[in-house]
Amino acid sequence: MRMSNVVMTTTKMVSPFLVTYSIYIMIYGHISPGGGFQAGVILAVSVILLLTAHGYEEMEKKFTESQFKIIESIMGIAILILVSIGILFGGMFYNYINRGTFGLPFSGGIIPLFNIFVGFKVGAGFMVVYYILTRWSEGD
């Protein structure tokens, strides 16, 4: 099911900005308000906008469900590995990367990496849930 021409053009214009904003929140999550989870939700919304406007059947070919599943699984494993490497440096969940200058993007040790991984994982996870629910409600 497709929406009208106006909605399709508007979502095409808006969603790149949403992706940029989401990446900004991911990278600057430890300096300004924000974080991984919120960035992931915005990332998922940018794709859901396109999906609802252009119709499920057409967009399913461009954003396949399996690629979201692969991203989510890889990011889940990456979070576990990132967190477990701390065992070598003193303990599980230990922040082992050198903390840089206060207030710069490269500061806080593993916090920015953790934010980025959680952002992609949550975004892909919401997309998988959206696909499942869409298929369930449309019944195909």
Binding site: G29, H30, I31, S32, P33, G34, G35, E72, G76, I79, L80, V83, M92, F93, N95, R99, G100, T101, F102, G103, S107, G108, G109, I110, I111, F114, N115, V118, K121, V122, G125
Partner: peptide, 28 residues
């Protein structure tokens, strides 16, 4: 000690990293 200007993120992703990391797994 944390080195981030966002204290909420410092609590969530450094002092309480075990909570946040396992929370992601709960979402999975």
């Amino acid at each position: 000690e944390i080195g981030t200007s966002n204290l909420v993120m410092g609590i969530l992703a450094d002092w309480r990293l075990y909570d946040s990391a396992i929370e992601a797994m709960i979402f999975f």
